[in-house]
Computed example of a mutant assay.
Amino acid sequence: MALVRWNPWREIDTLQRQINDIFADTRVPSALFERGIVRVPAAELEETENAILLKLEIPGMEAKDLDVQVTEKAVYISGERKQETKTEEKGATKSEFYYGKFQRVIPLPARVENTSVTADYKDGILNLTLPKVEAEKNKVVKVNLDQASA
């Protein structure tokens, strides 16, 4: 049996490469667990004077497979990407697609009128237009200080 000298830096280098691999993953986050990481649809949020525009990237799914719920303060989206079953007799298949259930809650920067939301789902992009609630007008109340000191 041969003695091998232990080098602690080799283990640190391995750990550093693994961490770099996690952060260097440039694939679009999609929907599942992969190596313990939760994949969710990528989102883009834009706030205008009258509405909040939310864009979600959900490729490869049909609208009937998505569940979108809107409250005054958040958008909840969930769905399931089902795996296609194929039978191949020769060769190996490598897939970077993600299959399974996903869910995401996106908090909104302002209250919205959730009964007036419009949605458009085309080419794997879900666009939501969330109209803002009209801000309550500030009521000015005069405080009578003469009665307060009595």
Rank of each mutant, 00 (worst) to 15 (best):
E34A: 03
T85A: 08
V38W: 07
D25W: 15
E49H: 15
V68G: 04
R27H: 05
T26L: 11
Q69R: 12
T26E: 09
K94S: 13
P109R: 14
A110K: 15
L54C: 03
P131G: 10
K73F: 04
R104G: 08
P131C: 10
A63Q: 03
I58A: 00
G60R: 08
A63R: 05
K90Q: 09
V141H: 13
E96S: 08
K86Q: 07
V70N: 01
T26P: 02
V117A: 15
G100Y: 02
T87F: 12
I22C: 02
A42N: 00
R35I: 01
F97T: 11
D65C: 04
L54Y: 07
Q16V: 04
G100T: 02
F23A: 03
P107G: 12
T115M: 12
Q103H: 14
V141D: 15
V70G: 00
K132H: 02
V28E: 13
D65R: 12
G79K: 07
Q69K: 13
K139M: 05
A24R: 08
E96W: 10
P59Q: 00
L126A: 04
D65H: 04
Q69T: 10
A43T: 13
E34W: 12
K90N: 08
E89M: 09
I77T: 01
N114V: 04
F23E: 08
E34Y: 06
T118A: 06
T85V: 13
E96P: 02
P109L: 10
L45P: 01
F97N: 13
S95E: 10
T71Y: 04
N114E: 08
L108D: 01
D120I: 03
D25V: 06
A43F: 02
L32Q: 11
K86C: 04
A92R: 13
R27Q: 09
A43H: 05
L56I: 00
A119K: 09
L66Q: 00
V75M: 15
I58T: 00
A92I: 13
R81Y: 04
R81K: 14
D120W: 03
L45V: 05
R17I: 00
T93G: 02
P109Y: 13
E62Q: 12
A31S: 14
F102K: 01
I52W: 00
K122P: 02
A135G: 13
E134N: 13
T87W: 01
E80C: 10
E44Y: 15
R35S: 10
P59H: 07
E88R: 05
D25S: 12
E134F: 10
P59G: 03
E46C: 11
A63E: 01
E62W: 06
A92M: 14
K82E: 11
E88V: 05
K132R: 05
K132S: 02
A119D: 02
V70P: 00
D13W: 14
M61T: 00
P59I: 01
